[in-house]
Computed example of a mutant assay.
Amino acid sequence: MAANATSSGQATGSARLLQKQLKEMHTSDISGISVGLVHENNIFEWEVILMINDDCKYYGGAYFRAVMTFPSEYPHLPPKIVFQTPVPFHPNIYPNGELCISILHPPEEDKYGYESASERWSPVQTPETILLSVLSLFNEPNDESPANLDAAKLLRAEREGGPKEFRKRVRQCVRESLGEI
């Protein structure tokens, strides 16, 4: 019974923090990010729209929708971000839309030894800092630890002077996001 009371209290604290952070995001002027609730009565599930500018790797700009789901243990555990259809063709986004970025990995030692604990989730992160990191990932994809191997291979080949296949796939994805296809 005490564990349930603790969980319930933690969820209430998490909900208050998320309400505050959502309000702060609505009152700040963050270029390229729009957030709201998926369902009016659920503060733990946010709809996110990222407006990717013309200057990044996503040539021509794009609008990508995602759902950011927060655990009841937030801010002690990270949220999860899943892009909706069309899923961006990106080295750090699994084909099912789930985002793979170090700051959203649980706050523990990486069992594979790739990331240090300092690169992983920390309660100092906020939805705003997370989404700004995601925007920067569109500017500079990380092909060192890819979630989408095909995207990473095509990006590497293009960086090495190979065919512009990555750019072609990204443009198709951008057109889909803008409703052109």
Rank of each mutant, 00 (worst) to 15 (best):
N96S: 11
D29N: 15
E108L: 10
S118R: 12
I181Y: 14
E45F: 03
S14Y: 09
I52H: 09
T69L: 04
C56W: 13
L22M: 13
V38C: 00
S122Q: 10
N148K: 08
L178V: 03
A157Y: 07
C100S: 10
Y74S: 02
S7N: 13
E73Q: 06
S133G: 12
H90S: 09
R120T: 01
E98Q: 15
L135A: 06
R65C: 09
D54G: 09
P163I: 01
V35Q: 04
A157K: 11
P106T: 01
P106K: 02
Y112D: 07
A66Q: 08
Y63W: 06
K153Q: 13
T27E: 14
R16V: 01
P163T: 05
R175N: 10
A5Y: 10
W121L: 04
G97A: 07
E40S: 15
F64G: 03
S145Q: 07
G113Y: 12
H90W: 10
V134Q: 01
Y112K: 13
E115A: 14
P123S: 08
E144V: 03
L155D: 01
Y114H: 14
G161D: 00
L17H: 06
I103T: 02
N148L: 03
E119M: 15
L22H: 04
A147D: 10
K80N: 11
Y58P: 12
P75M: 00
Q125F: 15
